[in-house]
């Protein structure tokens, strides 16, 4: 464990806590893409299938449980909570996310560390996570001004993988034979997808203005 990875995990955790706060405090999920939440639930379920077979550390196991449980709770809340689900922007959240699942699965079958069930699921989760934010970014562009908590949620979610890139650079220089090229390339793509969001988020912070993404 290094400071970049720990900071990345904490930033990821904060993004989930901010989203939970937004939904709990406002009893609304307006501006949140349910499709992105469903994709993230799939990412965690596919990536953490080894939660019961591979024990890495108490920290690792607890964080996996927290990520799976919180994301499933958010999806359930957006689908099943009688108050929250009324505020879901169903007509704006129209990204064809099934294509993202299919493309990630095909790519995982072609490019993986080893042709085993677990490795292919892991690669699938890595590729899917890289594009999981797309429905959310499209929804933000369509929904005009973005409330603060939603903007902070997306910001922290984008920042965490950027910190992981620093972690991979650090591990590359400090650990012999360290190679995470699938996660690294995918992480670079993932972080790059946030580039314009980060730009407009910085502008809104600098000008102390409401965050607004151009349509």
């Amino acid at each position: 464990m290094n400071i970049f990875r720990f900071a990345g995990d904490m930033t990821h955790l904060i993004s989930i806590l901010v989203l939970l706060l937004k939904i709990y405090a406002t009893k609304s999920c307006s501006g949140i893409s349910r499709k992105t939440q469903e994709l993230y639930a799939l990412v965690f379920l596919a990536r953490y299938v080894d939660i019961f077979t591979e024990f890495i550390s108490v920290y690792n196991t607890i964080m996996k449980i927290v990520f799976i449980a919180s994301t499933l709770a958010i999806v359930w809340c957006m689908r099943g909570h009688r108050v929250v689900r009324r505020s879901y922007d169903k007509e704006l959240d129209t990204f064809r996310h099934y294509f993202l699942i299919a493309a990630s699965l095909v790519l995982a079958l072609l490019v993986h560390e080893k042709f085993t069930f677990q490795e292919i699921l892991w690669a699938f989760s890595i590729y899917l996570e890289a594009v999981a934010i797309l429905p959310q970014l499209v929804l933000l562009q369509r929904s005009g001004n973005v409330d603060n908590l939603t903007g902070q949620y997306v910001f922290f979610l984008g920042a965490y993988r950027g910190l992981y890139i620093l972690n991979w650079i650090y591990r590359y220089f400090t650990e012999p034979h360290f190679s995470r090229w699938i996660a690294c390339v995918s992480g670079l793509v993932q972080t790059a997808l946030y580039a314009d969001f980060f730009y407009y988020y910085f502008l809104s912070w600098k000008n102390n203005a409401k965050l607004k993404l151009p349509a």
């Binding site: 890495i56 690792n60 990520f67 560390e113 080893k114 490795e119 892991w122 190679s179 995470r180």
Partner: peptide, 10 residues
């Protein structure tokens, strides 16, 4: 290719 390493990252 390289053997599958333990996935110690989240």
């Amino acid at each position: 290719g390289p053997s599958s390493y333990p996935k110690d990252e989240l």
